[in-house]
């Protein structure tokens, strides 16, 4: 029982990341009808926003103190981050909270990137085939990835969660089970909460604002909305920016769990496409449900009990689910009838 509970918990945070990426992917597909293979690169860009901010906050002032020497006989260098020098405790606090603070950088930056990408590139591909869309965004993903690699190197760069949530919680003990059976890092809980808030925010935005209503109407019947004198293209551009922001935030907040490297986007992209397909192309609820579902399935598949009679299942479970779904119910779990059902 507690093993199952543990696996569900383990799957949730990964599922949260899948859900957030898939949400953006399916939003873009539903509105613009574009298959965006560069969406994973946006996730990665977000993660590297967090890395950059961390580097920036940690810029240090080096003071050589000639009166003291290190054990090696060289003059002692005292390194203090500028922030600490300028702001004292508040500076230290900022450095500690660099990952959540990076969201402040991620939101405007990713919005800019998203809008620029849509206006500069994607716009010209509305009428082209899906194959062309896949190819050009695939090319873009390679470009973004290589730029990051050139600037940050090929190795993963670990990021620390704020001290206050750096440890783990013994959930098992709190629920009256044996201690140390279910230990769960605080940061994953934070991530789960964050994912829930973002997903809720996106849904609220789409369902409770006029803007969202217009966007949903446009997803349903773009032409009619256009005929009513609404500039639907501009709204869809903003939706693309929004999807980029969601992906970027998901990436930035995921850095303490998974040290970001330049190809993390590609790794997540393939999986999130699978998530979108399982949930149903263009279905927002489907993407979220499938994201969590597949995250949990994946962590169940990596249990030793299951691996012992189905070796290798943890490696392929997600793809296997996708294959079965595509063959049996191509519109996906919650997809609308007739959407991409060829």
């Amino acid at each position: 029982m507690d093993a199952i509970f543990l696996q569900i918990l383990n799957g949730l945070d990964k599922g949260g990341a899948y859900a957030l990426i898939a949400l953006g992917l399916t939003l873009v597909f539903g509105t613009l009808g574009v298959v965006n293979f560069a969406h994973g690169a946006l996730f990665m860009l977000g993660a590297f926003c967090a890395v950059s901010l961390n580097l920036l906050l940690n810029l240090e002032k080096v003071v050589v103190d000639p009166s003291q020497t290190t054990p090696w006989g060289t003059p002692l260098e005292i390194r203090t981050p500028y922030l600490q020098e300028w702001f004292g405790d508040f500076g230290t606090w900022m450095i500690d909270y660099s990952v959540p603070l990076s969201l402040l950088l991620v939101i405007p930056f990713m919005l800019m990137v998203g809008v620029a990408m849509e206006r500069g590139l994607i716009k010209h591909f509305y009428k082209r085939t899906h194959a062309d869309q896949i190819l050009v965004t695939f090319g873009l993903a390679i470009v973004v990835q290589e730029i990051i690699k050139a600037n940050f190197g090929a190795n993963p760069i670990p990021q620390a969660a704020p001290d206050i949530v750096a440890g783990s919680m013994d959930i098992g003990a709190a629920l009256g089970m044996d201690p140390n059976t279910i230990v769960y890092p605080y940061w994953r809980m934070v991530y789960l909460f964050f994912a829930a808030v973002v997903i809720g925010g996106v849904f609220a935005f789409l369902h409770m604002t006029t803007f969202g209503m217009v966007v949903r109407a446009g997803m349903h019947d773009r032409e009619t909305v256009g005929l009513m004198g609404i500039d639907i293209d501009r709204r869809f551009t903003i939706v693309f920016g929004l999807a980029a922001v969601v992906a970027g935030m998901a990436g930035a907040m995921y850095t303490p769990t998974l040290p970001p490297d330049y190809h993390m986007g590609m790794d997540f992209l393939v999986l999130s496409f699978v998530v979108v397909v399982v949930g149903g192309m263009g279905s927002l609820g489907g993407a979220v449900a499938a994201g969590f579902l597949l995250g949990i399935l994946q962590s169940f598949a990596s249990m030793t009990e299951i691996k012992s009679f189905l070796p290798g299942i943890d490696q392929i479970i997600i793809y296997l689910v996708a294959v079965v779904i595509l063959l049996v119910r191509p519109r996906g779990l919650l997809g609308q009838k007739g959407v991409m059902e060829d």
């Binding site: 393939v270 397909v277 793809y319 996708a322 595509l326 063959l327 191509p330 991409m340």
Partner: peptide, 12 residues
Amino acid sequence: RSGIYFSILTLA
């Protein structure tokens, strides 16, 4: 399947 679904199936 055809179109993008075919691409994703082969990829999977």
